[in-house]
Each structure stands twice: as C-alpha cells, then as structure tokens.
Amino acid sequence: MEKKLAVGAIVATVAMWASSFVVIRAFAEELSPGPLGLLRLLAGVITLSVMLLWLRRGRARLPGRRGLLLGAAFGVVWFAVYTLAFNWAGHFLDAGTIAMLVNLAPLMIALGGGFFFGEGFPRQLFAGMAVSLLGIGLITFAGTTGRLSLAGLLIALAAAVLYAVGMLIQKLTLRHTDPLTATWIACAAGVVALLPFIPQTIAEVGDASAGSIVGAVYMGIGPTALAFMFWGYAMMQFPAGRVAASTLSVPAIVVVMAWIFLAEVPPALAIIGGVICLVGVAIVQWRTPRRRGRGSHAEPTPDRAPAPA
C-alpha cells in the first residue's frame, strides 16, 4: 500500500512541477527572480505551517541539530538558490527548453546516489552521460543560431546542478525527520535566504497583475508545499535515483502545456537535443531485472521499485 501511495505522490508531484515551468514563463516579465521566489516561498511556508498545526495539533516535532542543519541546507540550495536560477532562466528561454535542461538532474542524482548512498553505478551510466552530453551540444548549438539565449542555457544548466544537489541533501535530511517537517524547515530557510529581496518585492507587487500574484501563490501551495512533501514521502520509499527518473516525463508535459497556454514551442534542433538528453538519462536509470534461475520469470530487484510510467 505504501508503495502505491508513493507512486501516486510522484505522479501528483510531476504534474505540479510541470505546471510551474509554464507559470514561471507566463509571468517572468512581471516579477523579477527574487520577488517571484520570495512570494512563492512565503505562500509555501504559510501552507506548510497550517498543515503542521492541523496534522500535529500544534505540536511541532523538530529533529536534532544535524537534521535542522541539513534541512536548512536543503532549503537554501533548492528552495532559494535553485528557485532564483529557475526563475531567471524563464527570462531567456521557453518553458520546454528549460524543462529539458533542468531534467538532466536525474543523471547527476544517479551519480550522487552511487557515491553517497550506495545505490551503485550501473554499467550504462557513462553511456548515458555520453548520450546526454550530445544532446546538450545540440541545444547549445541551437543557442548559437540565435534561436536560444546562451546565457539562458547556462542558467538552466546551473539550475539542474542545484536541483540534483538539493535532492541529495533532502535524502539525508529525511534520515532525521519526516517529509512534512523537512519541507517546512527547508521552506522556512529558503524564505530567510530571500529576505534581502523584500524591498524589491514590495516595489514590484504594486505594479504586477493579479494573475502574476495568483501564479506565485499557486507555486507556493502546489509545486512547493504539497509537491515537495509528496516528493519527500516518495524518497523514503524508493532510491533517490529511481525517484528522480520519474521526472523524465516533465519536459513532454511542459511542451504540451506551453503550446496550449503560451503558444510557444522550442526550436526543432533544441527539441531533438532535449530528446537525446532524456534518452541518455533513461539509459542511466534503466534496470535489467534479475532472474532467480533458469526459466524463471523476471522480477524487479527487491530494493528497487520500477519508475512510474
């Protein structure tokens, strides 16, 4: 039952994260990266605080010092710095291209999972890396043609690195506390890290449209508070690399959403490069089922759950 709930949590998270790419792109011109990130995290921490008060009846169960430090580091890296890079990329690139580049993170997470969590180094790891690098090369070449911004490509790649580091720190944090508490600590730390943007936020909110404010609040409630809590639950059930593999579906969802709501599609060469990148990530994440004996049916390895479709 827990595994089924974890798969459902992953599906809901992937859908909410995909929508965030479109929201960022839609309102990137109205709110700067800092104010947008601060509004998002404020909405997230308020939502998480209400959930903690309701579910825990006002009794917070904070982890020890190590858990608090890890949770704060997770929040600063992923909720604050990653959010800034993610928002900034929306000023230069279309939603689909950002999604394809950010979703190189599962490959990086697979490496980190092998180094730090003993999740192993599959033989296809380096083959997948080579394929993904070819994809990055095509996307970069699309940037040199003037169809994409090279600055935007570098910012999106930096966001992918921050994504991977943040998820690995989250995995460590979850050894000391539950997903809801870990997400609340991280979100609060992210808000503190973005407090220097308060004056700019006050200035920009006065001129921003209602849609941009609603979009920022939605990103705080959905893609931040709920999605990260769901993601943390899934991380407790499956290995980090396998959970990260589920984000392979995000770029495709984003491209469809961006086409419907924003009428934008990445350049053809960038789409080809993005598909190649995702093939490389898929190669890394592929697991060959073990067989118990001759003529037996293939079964998944006991400590690895198949990634959701």
Rank of each mutant, 00 (worst) to 15 (best):
W184M: 00
L195C: 06
A189K: 11
A164C: 04
G143H: 08
M129N: 00
F141G: 00
A142L: 07
A193P: 09
T145S: 15
L104H: 02
A188Y: 03
G114A: 11
G166P: 11
G152V: 07
P196T: 08
F126P: 03
I185S: 02
G143M: 09
G120A: 06
L153G: 01
S149T: 11
L154T: 11
E119T: 03
A158T: 14
L125P: 13
P106L: 02
G114L: 07
L168S: 01
Q124E: 05
P106F: 07
L104Y: 00
I185N: 06
G143T: 14
T145R: 13
V102N: 14
P122L: 08
I109S: 11
L125W: 08
P122C: 00
G118Y: 07
R175V: 00
H176F: 15
G166L: 04
W184Y: 14
M167H: 13
L154M: 09
P122W: 10
L148Y: 13
A188T: 11
F115V: 15
I169R: 05
L168G: 06
P106Q: 03
K171N: 09
I136S: 04
L148W: 13
A142N: 09
L111W: 10
L134Y: 04
W184C: 02
G120N: 05
T144C: 00
A156H: 09
L125S: 02
L168Y: 07
F141S: 12
L150R: 07
T140I: 10
A193Y: 11
A158L: 15
G166Y: 10
F116V: 02
